[in-house]
Design a protein around this nucleic acid. Structure first.
Length: 891
RNA sequence: GCCGUCUUAGCUCAGUGGUAGAGCACUCGCUUCACACGCGAUAGGUCACAAGUUCAAAUCUUGUAGACGGCACCA
């Protein structure tokens, strides 16, 4: 069999995923071992409006690496996929579509019709990401795919809502909330972002005091809200205003008189020391209002325009137009003191960037005190979730929990889980699991259901257990027993509060367990400009383009290589490195198969005598052990580095070169040995580069013997179900590694001489090596390899060097090397080369000398360290002496 | 305002007390029969700065400068 000269990722990608999926390899049921330990991950459900971005690609890579790694180890693994319904995003898209195509509003077509459109939209566009995940090679169990609005998951939402209501953990109340006038819905605190603007204004308004020829000046950044003022507040100990407390002001532009109240909230030193109080439009003013029993006057509509309560002149006017008009009218009345430039921080709707309006509104809330305790308790008693990296996430997570406010869960949308609350005309509220139940409770009264839906995160918060079949009516399923708690959650920093925390609380509350033991928080993949990727910055990198350009495997392993937990700038060159890596492995396999002896089969007897064999087996096992350790610790970058260097440096640069002649000569045993090494190494690499490894592994002869895990005995042959190499510490051979180092060092020294002396690669020369008896034997045993790799004519191995003056020389830790170069050598060059080598060694030695002559060091450092340095010092002394003699001999 | 992170080779980044690393780029040399997406050989860092702890600091402590993140406040 002969492979193409270069690896073409595309063809491998196209052929394997389908077979894996159709063979049921992704489902936990593929594992036939009744005693297999479970391993489970639920995906952070991407939203149905989205398409794959680099953050997904990174997180999916990590989840897939973990899943494939555990699956190969014989765990019964489940990586559960799914999507969330993205209430606001979908609603906005459908509203937009409706407006564009039919020039209609949702109200024009009604709720039922609108929801049908949403479902149609979801069917048409909602599976973009799931299709892209197939390309990624994600080994998710598609048969368990879930959507937050699936019937069972919706039932779970209703039951959870009702239970929490019945237990008093959910309440309905009039509060100041974050209102998005564009989306016309309330937002939770976490959905509101901030934007600092330098062009803000602080406007000073004068309010005339009733019965006095005096005004009171207040400062505001939102002048239009004065139309809703119901008091002015001052600090009770503020001498300037003490006499005014209890009086009233005539609120300009209105016919209202409002009181001046004293409240500790007001800071005398800030602004004018007097604060206009608008209880219906500001959270702090709301609290002042509560303390003083002030009227709550709502002056805005849900679209950000002023309402009739603001006065006839303002009714229907946009809030920003009203702002200008208020200022102009104050100016006309001579009541405008001044307008100052002011840097202001505005609350912005996370999704549509509209300025959020704090507004008094009746909404549903989850009480967070006891909820929070559930999460804090899990952290205290079980250390759950264990964040990786632990610093700083655990601290940020707990700090946030400790200062948690109640969670607004109602949303003024249609797309989502409609709140299971019904109202009668007399203000009665009936929270029930169904309309029938509500009617029963209401005793036949006329009812209408709350028209709002629940925050999408409310249903996502149930994801860890609703996906396994729990819906409140059914509370025990095999999947739940088997797969909850899940082993690890992999997600981004941005949803630790929004999602991670809520899933911890709700899972504890309803199933009594932690949702996941570990939580891997990935860093953010930044654009080339060092900023988070975003459409507005146009600095995004499309994973699909990377797949096309470099291959899925190269993109995956590159992403794993940067998965340290820290933010990292995207770098195409990095992916290219791993594209080259894939090609390197392809060609190493190509070489192995090119000269294949028909009798050879992977997994055969690997017992070997040669140093190179013992060495590569040692390196392989060492790498496997370290690799498993790195993955255990979620150190993906370290895992990749181990694989990269094993394949490229150890296997390709040295092992293949060392046994090349034997292989090319058709030596059956040598071929079997290299096949065995390669086969094991491919298994080790598989979680990171699934397509490449499957493609190549399938081409290796005799690989079915690697499918000896009884858990998969009935499955078709695939590297993804072959044993994952754990490494065997007994096969680590320190002696072989030391001896191989000696051989490699000699070869490198000779190559250095050749290059520095500018001797053509085509010219062969004799190489003399001096070493002690043990190493002489090593060099003799590997004479053929040294001859080949050093491109030497002949090797002379002895206790001491016996060479002509006109020789180039070098030393290693274990040997002295000389190359007689009569007719070739340039004495000046050799002198310079030796001087350079000596200088380097001398520099190291002088550091050691200084350290070892320090009595404090010798006394107080561990004897082991001191001995090691002394040994090194002796080595250096001898090497420098040798080279100095060589240098003198040249003069 | 509070909490936290980062600053290491030209670039992108590893490296948590004991001789500074990788990939790419650069320089030099190679159509060596797996691979030019390659092979071989070099060069390149007072680890942001300062002080401290220690026999020993890129690594621990404190401070300074710069970059950034989260939370709170914002009349």
């Amino acid at each position: 069999m002969e492979l193409a000269k270069a690896y073409d990722p595309r063809s491998a990608e196209e052929s394997h995923y389908k077979r894996w999926e159709e063979s049921g390899f992704f489902a936990p049921e593929i594992n036939q071992d009744p005693d297999a330990v479970r391993y489970s991950i639920v995906i952070p459900p991407p939203n149905v409006t989205g398409s794959l971005h680099m953050g997904h690609a990174l997180q999916h890579t990590i989840m897939d690496v973990l899943t494939r790694w555990k699956r190969m180890q014989g765990f019964r693994t489940l990586w559960l996929p799914g999507t969330d319904h993205a209430g606001i995003s979908v609603q906005r898209k459908v509203v937009e579509q409706l407006r564009k195509d039919e020039n209609k509003s949702p109200l024009d077509i009604g709720r039922e019709e609108f929801l049908q459109r949403c479902w149609a939209w979801k069917e048409q566009y909602g599976n973009t990401i799931t299709e892209q995940m197939r390309r990624e090679g994600a080994s998710v169990d598609w048969s368990r795919h879930r959507f937050t609005m699936d019937e069972s998951l919706s039932l779970a939402v209703r039951n959870v809502f009702c239970t929490l209501y019945e237990e008093g953990w959910i309440y309905r109340g009039l509060r100041i909330v974050n209102w998005c006038p564009k989306d016309k819905t309330v937002l939770s605190d976490l959905e509101v972002k901030e934007e600092t603007r330098k062009d803000g204004k602080l406007t000073y308004l004068k309010y005339p005091i009733v019965g006095m020829d005096r005004t009171l000046t207040v400062a505001t950044t939102r002048p239009e809200t004065m139309l809703g003022d119901t008091a002015v507040a001052v600090n009770p100990s503020d001498e300037r205003y003490k006499d005014l407390v209890g009086k009233t002001v005539a609120l300009p532009l209105t016919d209202r008189e409002i009181p001046i109240v004293a409240d500790e909230y007001v800071e005398a030193g800030f602004g004018t020391g007097a604060v206009k109080v608008t209880p219906a439009h500001d959270p702090n003013d709301y609290l002042i209002g509560e303390r003083h029993g002030l009227e709550q006057l709502l002056i805005m509509n849900d679209d950000g325009t002023m309402n009739a309560a603001a006065g006839a002149e303002f009714d229907g006017m946009d809030r920003f137009a009203a702002r200008e008009k208020v200022v102009a009218m104050f100016d006309e009345l001579g009541l405008l003191e001044k307008v100052e430039d002011y840097e202001i921080t505005l609350p912005i709707c996370e999704r549509c960037k509209t300025i959020v309006e704090p507004i008094l509104s009746e909404q549903w809330f989850v009480k967070m005190d006891e909820m929070r305790d559930l999460a804090l308790e899990l952290m205290r008693t079980e250390g759950s979730p264990h964040f990786s990296p632990q610093v700083p996430h655990e601290k940020v997570y707990t700090a946030w929990l400790e200062n948690l406010k109640d969670w607004t869960i109602s949303r003024q949308l249609w797309w989502g889980h409609q709140i299971p609350a019904w109202y009668d005309d007399d203000g009665g509220v009936y929270v029930a699991r169904s309309a029938e139940e509500a009617r029963e409770k209401a005793g036949g009264r006329e009812l209408r259901q709350d028209s709002d839906v629940l925050d999408t995160w409310f249903s996502s918060g149930l994801w860890a257990f609703s996906t396994f079949g729990w819906n409140g009516s059914v509370t025990k399923t095999d999947d739940l027993t088997n797969f909850l708690p899940t082993d690890v959650l992999v997600t981004g920093r941005d949803i630790i509060f929004l999602w991670v925390s809520r899933m911890m609380m709700l899972t504890k509350k309803f199933v009594g367990e932690t949702a996941f033991r570990d939580c891997v928080i990935t860093g953010t993949v930044l654009g080339k400009d060092g900023k988070p990727m975003s459409k507005s910055r146009n600095n995004g990198v499309d994973p699909i383009e990377m797949f096309d350009k470099f291959g899925v495997d190269a993109t995956r392993i590159y992403l794993a290589s940067i998965a340290t937990g820290a933010d990292i700038k995207w770098n195409d060159v990095g992916v290219e490195t791993y594209r080259n890596f894939a090609n390197k492995i392809w060609n190493a396999t190509r070489f192995t198969l090119l000269n294949q002896n028909a009798a050879a089969a992977a997994g055969g007897d690997v017992a070997s005598q040669s140093l190179a064999d013992r060495w590569i087996i040692s390196r392989l096992n060492r790498t496997a052990i370290e690799l498993n350790k790195a993955l255990d610790r979620y150190e993906f970058h370290a895992a990749v580095s181990l694989l990269y260097h094993f394949f490229w440096d150890d296997f390709c640069d040295w092992y293949i070169e060392l046994c090349k002649d034997e292989i090319n000569a058709g030596d059956a045993e040598a071929t079997e040995r290299i096949l065995a090494i390669l086969e094991t190494a491919l298994r080790m690499l598989h979680p990171f580069m699934p397509y490449l490894t499957e493609e190549l592994w399938q081409k290796l002869p005799g690989t079915s013997s690697a499918m000896h895990n009884p858990a998969y005995r009935n499955a078709d042959r695939s590297v993804m179900l072959a044993d994952f190499p754990l490494g065997d510490a007994k096969l680590i051979d320190e002696q072989a590694e030391n001896e191989m180092s000696a051989v490699i060092d000699v070869i490198k020294r000779v190559r250095n001489i050749r290059t520095e002396m500018q001797i053509s690669p085509s010219i062969k020369f004799d190489v003399h090596i001096a070493a002690d008896d043990a190493f002489q034997r090593v060099f003799r045993d590997n004479e053929a390899q040294i001859l080949k790799l050093a491109r030497a004519e002949q090797l002379v191995i002895a206790a001491i060097l016996d060479v002509p003056k006109a020789s180039a020389r070098a030393v290693t830790n274990d040997a002295a090397v000389a190359v007689p170069l009569i007719g070739l050598i340039d004495f000046d060059k050799e002198r310079a080369r030796l001087a350079n080598a000596i200088a380097k060694l001398a520099e190291e030695k002088s550091r050691l000398d200084a350290q070892l002559s320090n009595a404090n060091f010798v006394e107080r450092a561990p004897a082991e360290k001191v001995d090691a340095l002394r040994t090194r010092q002796a080595e250096l002394t001898s090497q420098i002496e040798t080279l100095n003699n060589n240098l003198e001999a040249l003069n």
